[in-house]
Simulated scan of single mutants.
Amino acid sequence: MLRIDELRKRYGDKIALDGVTLSVGPGEMFGFVGANGAGKSTTMRIVMGVLDADGGEVRWKDRPLDFETRRRFGYMPEERGLYAKMRVAEQLEYFGRLHGLTQAAAKKASDDLLERLGLTERRDSEVDSLSLGNQQRVQLAVALVHDPEMLILDEPFSGLDPIAVDALAGVLAERRAAGVPVIFSSHQLELVERLCDSVGIIAAGRMVAVGTVAELRGRESHKRLRVVVSGASAGWADELPGTIVAKDGDEVILESADDREVLRIASRAGRLEHFGWVEPRLSEIFREAVA
């Protein structure tokens, strides 16, 4: 539904985006990861029309994005954009009205989100009296109040405790189940790995890896073999083909290994307790991709 093609952006001599390309389909949750300054926020701001690109295109349902289409998106910037002295419920209703909801529809949407995000008891509190985590929940509620067709969230989980993370993840899962595409950036790679269907890794303004979590894990360069042999003589692993990346007692982890040859040697060395491929964590894939 959302297609970003060859986005380019430069600030003076600094290249912020260098041909960024990605797509997010219906009901897909896309995790956008990269170091600070890699280009995540710049990409999102261009999608939302906050910044103009120097080159490339953003399309929605195979049509160029325009103002009316963007109004139907839900956007959560990394910097909070809330009215500090406005009460929480009043603020949600206000943003709902800005998106074209009737007063009754805005109130109902506000009440539903306050309950879903655990903010009902703070509905009459001024925003600047809330904890940073609760302010983050309100910011997310603002992005959701008009039932958007697309969600673009910049660091939505920042500052949230585990309970709030679960509440937010549940809300996003509901939107995804309804067919809403979701793209969010995060430095919490274990969270991206748990929630996302697809991941894009950006470094210095360039996409260095894009695909489903399974595709990224399944790349040949990421394949590692875990072997556990008990009762083997000292130095038995020295005969194994490939590169030993970890060794702890009876356990050996190898990469670039011929699995059949490893199995033959391990079976003769002692009692084979475990033999199988190890799926890398997203954090390992990320470090390799940006190196």
Rank of each mutant, 00 (worst) to 15 (best):
S230T: 15
A164P: 03
A209S: 13
M1F: 02
G133N: 07
G133Q: 08
G242A: 09
A169S: 15
G55P: 08
V127L: 12
L101I: 10
G31F: 09
P77C: 11
L101C: 11
G100A: 05
I202A: 01
P181R: 05
L7S: 10
L114F: 11
G49N: 13
R271C: 06
P156A: 07
M29W: 04
V33H: 05
A109W: 06
R3S: 13
E79Q: 14
R206E: 13
T21Q: 00
R63V: 14
E220V: 04
L189V: 10
H274G: 10
P77W: 05
Y94W: 12
A291T: 11
R72N: 06
R59Q: 11
D124I: 01
A169N: 04
E28C: 05
E68S: 11
V252D: 12
L113Q: 11
G56Y: 06
V192M: 09
A178T: 01
P181V: 03
L191W: 07
D112S: 15
E79Y: 10
A203L: 01
L240P: 13
F73I: 03
G25D: 14
P148M: 00
E174Y: 03
T212F: 07
L282F: 14
G31V: 07
D128A: 06
A89G: 07
I244M: 13
V278P: 04
L132N: 11
R87L: 03
D147N: 15
M29F: 11
A234H: 09
L114S: 13
A257W: 11
